[in-house]
């Protein structure tokens, strides 16, 4: 076994262990740490594929920023508010059906793979300079400029969407139709002081 294969095995194990602990962990902080392990594992897989630049970006952006953001949000909400999985709505029967379906599908996939024997598809060795900053930059800004520019549209739409969905909660919505008729009698509070007080039957925000 050479060093490259050892790196692959370590990276793959890190990914699997991290992904499993992300899903299984009861405490959200542990799940976030599991995600961190997965990300480091993926970065080492990138290294093995001689994509050094991507590996560095993976560590800087995902481990450095995204996971920190996750942890920040978990801390903000309170780490123990959601400890323990919520009660699942499905009955035992539906869970067995779902699990059985997954098992059958995986079995079919394995069978399909096993039916074909032979060597896996092999890619040639990477060219010199493959995966360094210049190569990635050339690919992004010269050849694949169209998907790159489309990605800007994707980011903008994500930002607008996040604002649109998140902001509406802070604004008082118009009253529901039932109480609408009676409230229409007054166009605004009679006294400035009344503006501070909610109308009857409306819980204070």
């Amino acid at each position: 076994m050479n060093a490259g294969n050892a790196l692959f095995i370590v990276g793959a194990l890190l990914c699997l262990v991290g992904a499993l602990s992300t899903v299984i962990a009861r405490s959200p902080i542990r799940a976030a740490m599991g995600l961190l392990i997965t990300i480091i594992g993926i970065a080492s897989l990138f290294l093995k594929l001689s994509a050094q630049f991507l590996a560095a970006i993976q560590i800087i952006v995902y481990a450095g920023a995204v996971v920190v953001l996750f942890v920040f949000v978990i801390m903000l909400i309170g780490a123990d508010t959601s400890a323990g999985p919520p009660k699942s709505g499905g009955s035992v029967g539906s869970r067995i059906v779902a699990g059985g379906g997954m098992a059958v599908l995986s079995g079919l996939g394995l069978l399909l793979l096993a039916r074909f024997d032979g060597q896996p598809v092999r890619f040639g060795p990477a060219a010199v300079g493959h995966g360094d900053v210049e190569a990635v930059g050339g690919l992004l800004f010269r050849e694949a400029i169209i998907p790159f520019e489309l990605a800007t549209a994707l980011l903008i739409v994500a930002v607008i969407g996040a604002i649109a969905v998140a902001r509406s909660k802070a604004r008082p919505r118009p009253a529901p139709p039932e109480s609408h008729e009676s409230k229409r009698l007054f166009h605004g509070p009679l006294h400035p002081r009344d503006a501070q007080r909610p109308l009857s039957k409306e819980p204070a925000e």
Partner: peptide
């Protein structure tokens, strides 16, 4: 790009 916009549109009413 197409889907993210639509997801947000669905949740607009809150």
């Amino acid at each position: 790009t197409m889907s993210l916009g639509v997801y947000a549109l669905v949740g607009l009413r809150r």
